[in-house]
């Protein structure tokens, strides 16, 4: 019962937020709706017993892809009004692609029902959960390439810093020791200007 409720909840929110992605006026809102859709799709995967794919969806799609979209949308000056003006012109083409996709989905679903090779729905229940099995393979059999892959990521990080970071000379950082070491006589000048003559600077 709770499983059914959860499925309908996740499925409804996924579809609703997917529709909102298309209809949102503000591109930033679109990306935020997309993130919601990804989260709910991850929930659906969790119900299906594919917890590794669920986590992958969150880490890769939400953590990397969607955030990258957000950066691009916010940092590049894309004129979305101009993009939207071509809506009617691109409509036939978009409909064509939608039709092709629909046909493919229908064929895939019917083939899945008919095919003798693939029987039953969902992944088989194993004694060992997916994540545990993957972790075991990564940290025992494939430990060596796994560690080297870690070094590859480190090199990517060093490379990004080396190629983009530059220390600028016109920067004025806070220097705590200089602030503390400042004496009143360096900063304050006391003067007693005579009446009618003003202050000489």
């Amino acid at each position: 019962m709770i499983g059914l409720i959860a499925f309908y909840l996740f499925a409804t929110v996924t579809i609703a937020s997917a529709i909102a992605v298309i209809f949102a006026r503000n591109p930033v809102h679109s990306v935020l709706w997309l993130i919601l859709a990804f989260f709910n799709a991850a929930g659906l995967m969790l119900i299906a017993g594919a917890e590794f794919i669920a986590l992958l969806l969150i880490i890769v799609y939400v953590g990397a892809v969607a955030v990258l979209f957000l950066f691009v949308v916010m940092m590049l000056d894309v004129d979305f009004a101009a993009l939207r003006s071509g809506f009617t012109r691109n409509l036939p083409f978009g409909l064509l692609i939608a039709l092709v996709l629909l046909a493919e989905i229908i064929i895939a679903v019917s083939a899945w029902r008919a095919g003798p090779a693939l029987s039953g729905a969902g992944p088989r229940e194993a004694a060992q959960p997916n994540i545990e099995a993957l972790g075991q393979a990564l940290y025992t059999r494939f430990l060596y390439p796994f560690e080297i892959a870690g070094l590859i990521l480190l090199v990517a990080m060093i490379g990004a810093i080396v190629l983009t970071h530059r220390s600028r000379s016109d920067r004025r950082p806070q220097s705590a020791s200089r602030q503390i070491g400042r004496r009143p006589e360096d900063a304050v000048e006391l003067a007693n200007p005579p009446v009618g003559e003003g202050m000489k600077l």
Binding site: F142, Y144, P145, I148, A149, L151, I152, V155, A156, I158, G159, V162, L163
Partner: peptide, 23 residues
């Protein structure tokens, strides 16, 4: 083949950065 590819990528990735070192 796994180790082969991983080693090749580590070598190449560092090479890409080195090639553009004088940015």
């Amino acid at each position: 083949l796994v180790t082969l590819y991983i080693g090749l990528e580590l070598l190449s990735l560092a090479g890409y950065v080195l090639a553009s070192y004088r940015r």
